[in-house]
Design a protein around this nucleic acid. Structure first.
Length: 599
RNA sequence: GGGCCCGUGGUGUAGCGGCCCAACAUGCCAGCCUGUCACGCUGGAGAUCGCCGGUUCGAAUCCGGUCGGGCCCGCCA
């Protein structure tokens, strides 16, 4: 520790230090004033130490400490001593000792803070926390999470360095590409009317590094997307960006899995990883079994395809769904057969908000019959088949969604599965359930645009043995695209890239892009493929999400030092803000009056 | 672009048409206290109920708008 202000930290002193003369500096966590005797809990990021002033032992120090209140920054000097018998605090790591203060210096006073820095406050107004982020960051819970995140990042770096990865920085002022998310844009002063974009990810740059021969690249890269915020999305986030050459999908997944497993175990040795090697699901399996492409595998309650069982039920919703490529999926919620009208309505509402036209619910009666709106359409045999397919037992609630689009049916029911998993407390909080989803469909039909579009990254390569079918049946071709999910969150995703120009041009042609348009946007990458581009692929893992999951938080704000609100404001700095007319003029920009523009 | 929820002393909550110029806890201030650790005891100050407008004899309470925050849909290749 430094010399001028402290000899030890506030988390360091033990019984073995008794008798030593020490100097501590820190914040007053709490003060307990007994008149001629006063206790101060001194706090820094390492811990808390009790220091004592005594009017009879050291009058001057006692007087100096009198005006001191919570969150003042102070420095004390004195001797470490055992606490008297019966006054040891087992809650504190430093609880066996205290410092008998003989010199007490106020380094800086503090106003009364706008919220309690010394205790957790679950209901605390989010805007207050963000306005005074430096005080929130001072609180032990947030400090713990920032330390966890730092440890995580450090472990990632060490593992990747040990595996011969080379860290390369890429620019944050790059070219705008209108594909994908909206770009954040930065005006050029020197070239009026032209703009840089902040990278949504260093995608093209890292591929160019592969062409350049840096066969194992990584970077903790900042990525920017000008899209609406969510609990797991901020305007800017950090990704563990990785790219490798001379690899197949299996190689990337194996390398990443090894890193993720080792880092998890290093950072949180007490949290069990549900299964290694990580389970693998194809996209189709993930959707049909869990109704999600980022399934939470901590609990079962898998979707059941009722297509067979209800194929001949005379119920319009079913027959319409099953007429084409649709499906009827169901889940079994054990013991929920007694759900009230109100509870069922909540579930119906949830299903509808996630795309379902409705939700069919039946409860299983003691005599094995079904009760609910659907029951009267079912024969005895059909009832039996449904019970058999779902393994339904008396007292259970069966929930089903039918839709002409099987993905819609599965997706809505997948959301219900999560809801029921939550309500029934089926998800173990400490388990880490990593899972790979691989491969994905390469294209999806975009009805609005009237063309095929890449499901993920347009540079993703098809499975090599499906390449030939790309033009004939785009919907059936899979990309060498893998996503890593953890406890129901998408942690990261990547792919083997197309490294041949002809194939990339074919893929882009299918997506309706002209060669000229491609050249305009991706010229350098295209050209590079003609200069000895090696086979390559990679992945990007969301560091914020990973940190949040490991810290048991459901919002990435809780693991970011200075996050923004849902409307994109930085309440502490006051961003975004207007700029001066001079700044605008220098950039050749003019602000349009939004209100006048609309009318 | 849209839906839902929240906004009352510093903080967290209660009050939801008159009993409220607003209650409780904590914090804050003052005094007392030599073994506390959410110290204790006594006393005190502190909010025109986010803001604007409306309904009403009467509004923290009902309605509309607005601002701020949160959750979600769309969006996020």
């Amino acid at each position: 520790m430094g010399q001028a202000f402290r000899s030890h930290t506030c988390g360091e002193l033990r019984a073995s230090h008794v008798g030593e003369r020490v100097m501590l500096s820190g914040w007053v966590h709490r003060r307990r004033d007994h008149g001629h005797l006063a206790f101060f809990d001194l706090r820094d990021r390492y811990g808390i130490t009790q220091v004592v002033t005594n009017a009879h032992e050291a009058a001057e120090a006692h007087v100096a400490a009198e005006p001191v209140r919570n969150e003042w920054v102070v420095q004390v000097e004195g001797a470490v001593r055992h606490r008297p018998p019966g006054t040891i605090n087992a809650e504190l790591a430093t609880g066996e000792i205290e410092v008998a203060v003989d010199a007490f210096t106020v380094l800086n006073a503090s106003k009364v803070p706008p919220f309690y820095v010394n205790e957790e406050q679950p209901g605390l107004d989010e805007s207050l926390r963000l306005t005074y982020r430096y005080l929130d960051l001072r609180r032990p819970p947030l400090q713990g999470r920032m330390l966890l995140r730092a440890h995580l990042a450090s472990a990632v770096r060490r593992r990747l360095e040990a595996a011969a990865f080379v860290e390369v920085e890429t620019p944050t002022l790059i070219r705008s590409t209108p594909e994908g998310a909206r770009d954040f844009v930065v005006p050029s002063r020197v070239q009026p009317g032209k703009f840089y974009a902040l990278p949504q990810s260093p995608q093209q740059l890292k591929q160019l590094l592969m062409v350049a021969g840096y066969d194992r690249y990584y970077q903790l890269a900042r990525a920017y997307r000008d899209e609406d915020l969510r609990g797991d999305r901020q305007l800017e986030h950090t990704q563990i960006d990785i790219e490798m050459s001379f690899v197949a999908a299996e190689d990337v997944m194996a390398t990443v899995e090894e890193m993720v497993t080792a880092v998890s175990r290093e950072v949180l040795p007490d949290r069990p990883i549900m299964q290694t090697p990580f389970p693998r699901l194809t996209y189709e399996e993930a959707m049909s079994r869990y109704g999600s492409d980022k399934p939470d595998l901590r609990f079962g309650m898998e979707l059941v395809d009722l297509g067979e069982a209800v194929g001949d039920v005379d119920f319009r919703i079913f027959s319409e769904a099953l007429a084409g490529d649709g499906a009827v999926y169901a889940i079994r919620a054990p013991g929920c057969g007694n759900y009230s009208r109100r509870q069922l309505d909540e579930l119906i509402d949830l299903a509808q908000r996630h795309g379902a036209k409705g939700l069919i619910h039946v409860s299983v009666q003691a005599d094995g019959s079904l009760h609910g709106p659907l029951a009267k359409f079912l024969s005895l045999t059909q009832t039996q088949e449904i019970l058999e397919a779902t393994a339904g037992e008396a007292g259970d609630l069966l929930l089903a969604v039918a839709d002409p689009d099987r993905l819609v049916a599965a997706g809505a029911l997948g959301r219900l599965r999560l809801e029921m998993g939550q309500r029934l407390d089926l998800r173990d909080a400490s388990t880490l359930a990593y899972v790979w989803v691989y491969p994905f469909p390469m294209f999806k039909w975009d009805g609005d645009l009237g063309r095929w579009d890449a499901t993920h990254n347009p540079f993703s390569a098809p499975l090599w043995d499906e390449e030939a079918a790309m033009e004939a049946d785009p919907g059936a071709v899979h990309a060498q695209q893998y996503d890593l999910a953890l406890n129901g969150w998408e942690l990261g995703g990547g792919s083997i890239r197309i490294h041949r120009r002809d194939l990339l041009e074919r893929a882009f042609a299918l997506m309706g892009h002209s060669v000229d348009g491609m050249r305009d946007q991706f010229g350098a990458l295209l050209d590079s493929l003609e200069y000895g581009a090696p086979p390559h692929g990679g992945i990007a893992i969301g560091l914020d999400r990973w940190s949040a999951l490991l810290a048991d938080q459901d919002n990435i704000r809780e693991v970011m030092a200075f996050p923004k609100t849902q409307s994109g404001s930085d309440l502490m700095m006051g961003a975004p803000s207007p700029i001066t007319p001079e700044q605008l003029a220098e950039l050749s920009l003019r602000v349009v009056d939004q209100d006048r523009e609309r009318s």
